[in-house]
Computed example of a mutant assay.
Amino acid sequence: MKTIKIITAAASIAILGFTSCQSDDNTEIGTNPNANYSTSTTASNYERAAMNDGSDDDFLDGNACTELLFPLTATVNNQQITLLSSLDFSSVINIMSEFNDDSDSVTFNFPIRVRTSNYTEVTVNNQSELDALNQECENAEAQGKDAISCVDINFPVTMLTYDISLEQTGSVVLQSEQQLYSYMTGLESDELFAVNYPISATLSNGTEIQITSDAEFQNAISECMQYEDEKEDAANTAAEVEAVLSGTKFKVETFINDGVDTANDYAEWSLEFTNDLKIVATNVVNSALGEIEGTYSVSSETEAFVNVNFASNTALSALGNNWVISTYSTTLITLQSKTDASVTLAFKKL
């Protein structure tokens, strides 16, 4: 999950629906210490937080800087599908998740339309043009011009306006991210502003916070971006562990509960993790015992998890748990119970 968006070379969107008025409210004329220039860190923070978010469809276009517009048609893993709205994303995800050891492919039926980070709508005529947008997105991230999508400002927000002498010239009420983005990118060098705090914002973890200063907004951004980095790291871990497990046979190397290692109870069993999220356990000593089938799934939040499930009346039911991935390699995966850190399990590749 990426959290970047790009400022493209297209012209800024005009500010629509702003209200401006001369006012002495909430400030002392000529003495506001929080007035910011267009080149200030605060201006950059609000501009980046207000960019159009194109990250929800990254699993299709691989580009957090562009929002795909509907309708569009694409071929996903050799299956053609027409998307009329974001509600159709689930159909694409179902196709992609059918097997976990294949390489998912998406081919668009061009032309398609996208909305960029500065709210400009662009027609993309072929894969080369889409690749160029993806490269712009990567360049923006490398240059520190990426957007901040982990803080959603709750509108309306009022900006108090000043001249270079710090004399208040009025106020502007902004009703949306697009208006905020246009305001920030339209500031002239002799125009200053101060945010009329407090404002509220919703973080990507669902927490709503009150912000009372530019410094608090900067802190909120730093904290939520760290949270997003943790989520991305966990998602990468989950993907890598799923690739290690899929289509491979393992044995129980250790299973420690209450300080006792009971791995010997499972020494006769091999466990194959199939590419359709099943576990097929086979007794390698006594074939008459047949096979025991369970399921597994790999997921992530700010940690990565492997959920293992066997029916309660089987020889392997005790392995069922939601396990936190502790360490992993191509041959050994160590896990810890999500609810009891003293319970650990390790799978070793056969």
Rank of each mutant, 00 (worst) to 15 (best):
M1K: 11
A9Y: 12
I13D: 10
G17V: 01
C21K: 15
E28D: 15
T31K: 15
T31F: 15
S38E: 10
Y46D: 05
Y46I: 10
A49C: 13
M51Y: 09
D53M: 10
F70H: 04
P71Q: 11
T73Y: 03
T73E: 05
A74C: 08
Q79N: 12
I81G: 02
S86M: 13
V92K: 02
N100A: 09
S103Y: 15
S105C: 13
V106R: 01
V106D: 03
T107C: 07
F108H: 00
P111Y: 10
T116Q: 08
E121F: 08
V124Y: 01
S128W: 13
N134D: 12
A142L: 06
D146L: 09
V157I: 12
T158V: 13
D163H: 08
D163T: 13
L166G: 10
E167Q: 15
Q168G: 12
G170S: 03
V172Q: 11
V173H: 05
Q175C: 04
Q175A: 10
Y181S: 04
T185R: 15
G186N: 06
G186K: 01
E188H: 08
D190W: 04
E191R: 07
V195W: 00
N196H: 13
I199R: 03
I199K: 03
S213M: 09
D214V: 05
A215I: 12
I221Y: 06
A235V: 13
A235C: 14
A239C: 15
A243D: 13
V244A: 03
V244D: 08
V252Y: 00
V252P: 01
V260G: 06
L277G: 10
N286K: 12
N286L: 11
A288H: 14
G290I: 08
T295D: 08
Y296I: 02
S299I: 00
V306H: 03
V308N: 02
N309C: 05
S317C: 02
V324T: 07
V324Q: 05
V324W: 02
V324F: 01
L335G: 01
D340H: 02
V343D: 00
A346Q: 00
K348P: 06
L350N: 11
